[in-house]
Amino acid sequence: MDEWEYKPAQDLGLRGSERLRSVKRESGLLGRIGQHLWWWWVRSALRLTERIEIIGQDNLPASVPFVMVANHSSHLDVLVLATALPARLRNHVFPLAAGDTFFETPVMAAFATGMMNALPMWRKNCGHHAIDTLRQRLLNEPSGYTLFPEGTRSRTGQLASFRHGIGMLVAGTSVPVVPCHLQGTFDAMPPGSKWPRRSRIVLRLGTPAVFASVPNDRSGWQAVARTLEESVRALGSPGA
């Protein structure tokens, strides 16, 4: 018989909004139920308003950890990516959302965590420490992330260059990264529009890449970002 192992919640001892803003947040029964209800609603709403096609679903690893990276041009992106996740993974996959936008006020933070299951990514003065905490969580807790390495929504629909933060998360680890390409979300709901228009959305999942042999330093991070950017770009132009 194995030794008993007790593992308190990693966010134990944090209070209220401090807990919501923590990247160590772990949700309990109520949180899970809330998220399942929310996702059920989002899924149904998306099915009603948009025509979504998912290509390459088999490329999604069966269990966490993994990271999904995609091009970003619409608030719909994170919702469409989540529709590719099976229900059993939903509570373990966290969209990384801009801390300064989605975690500034307690109400926004409650929405981002309670509904979207998001974790904060502090863009300004985030430095090594914030990303390193996320990296440790990926390695030690049953967690997966979805994130947009461009760092912000594209205002033109064109793919911008990937920042090397994604490299800081996965360089030198065996965590698979799934390149994803979203087509049609910009037309459905570009930045600035309030409501989505009905249109055809295609989500393409590429072959997962592992960066175990890439050094965990600046050159390695940049190599990871370049590789993934090319993969996502290639997914976006399947004919070429």
Binding site: Y6, K7, P8, A9, L12, E26, G28, L29, R32
Partner: peptide
């Protein structure tokens, strides 16, 4: 809830439910 979070029981939703 406090007990479940401290012992890690909350990671087993069926039993916790």
């Amino acid at each position: 809830r406090e007990f479940a979070r401290a012992t890690g029981m909350f990671r087993h939703p069926p039993i916790s439910s």
